[in-house]
Design a protein around this nucleic acid. Structure first.
Lengths: 154, 154
DNA sequence: CCGAACAGTTGAGAAAGTCAATCATTCTCT
DNA sequence: AGAGAATGATTGACTTTCTCAACTGTTCGG
């Protein structure tokens, strides 16, 4: 009875105005993906935040902290503590930018690169679980559309 | 010079592994949409959280707090303070669920419905700005794909 | 009817986000 | 070249949001 009523209300919520709202769907999908990602990365002592920094700093890009902040949409001060933590674990280093002595270019150490290789597998597996309902082609078009929202500058 | 280096690094970040990661794109797109939404709703003294509650409680669904929590992926205690605040502003009421005396069904007052009508316009306009790059058809397919991530149960 | 499960509330503590101030460096402009 | 504005990083204070455990009253299952 209250079970039925609950089902009706849940049904009603799913049919509500928000369900057509891309921003709401974005928020909910993100919440789910974030939880899954954090769970998947926990075994390596990482969260999606620190994992992201590790990925970005083990590539060719050699980003400064400011660039990390912009890319991850974080306050510069948040990047400070993020890098502090990764550095204290020996996963990342602050190296002086030869062209601008104000800036630190953050670069993953060998240990960081080794860890990110493992973590990448866990992240991929976790994501797989979240996106299991979508075909490969669907994931591609989803990624393409999201990319246009996430990087409006082109 | 350092400007060029920065551009290279930003270029490099955009080409990095994360840019193909749906979860990352989800996070970034959501951050942008959330900021835009909060900015658009600020003139009505709302945030996307309180706006969402107001929308959900001014429909036919008559959700309980537990249902709101589940739908918005919030802790029940967060719904308490969210409803507290809206109720103190006279926008929403807690009414007893006749079929379950533990539950409160939350329902928007006339004032709440009036406000949500205004706020909906602002939200729509703010969202328009974020999604300007996407055609109507693209928004539709995006919404459909996101819906399958956001509501995995079907 | 009894014990388990559940809706809502409270409160505490951790994590995340926001913001202004500061220092060193670099850029702009004349 | 030099003065002043702007920038990258850092710190610290503060607010908001998240996460959990405990507790009350109610309902459910057997």
């Amino acid at each position: 009875m209250s079970k039925t009523a609950g089902a009706i209300a849940a049904e009603g919520l799913r049919a509500s105005a928000l369900t057509d709202d891309v921003s709401f769907l974005l928020a909910r999908a993100n919440a789910i993906a974030l939880a899954a990602g954090n769970a998947a990365l926990a075994e390596h002592g990482l969260k999606v935040r620190s994992y992201s920094v590790l990925v970005l700093t083990s590539g060719e890009a050699r980003p400064s902290q400011r660039e990390l902040a912009e890319f991850l949409r974080l306050d510069p001060s948040q990047v400070v503590s993020l890098v502090d933590e990764l550095q204290s674990r020996g996963l990342v280093e602050r190296t002086p930018d030869p062209t601008d002595r104000r800036a630190n270019v953050v670069v993953a150490t060998d240990a960081g690169r080794a860890l990110v290789a493992l973590a990448r597998e866990s992240a991929r597996a976790g994501e797989e679980r979240v996106h299991a309902h979508l075909s490969l082609a669907e994931r591609e078009t989803l990624a393409a559309l999201l990319r246009r929202l996430a990087f409006p500058g082109e």
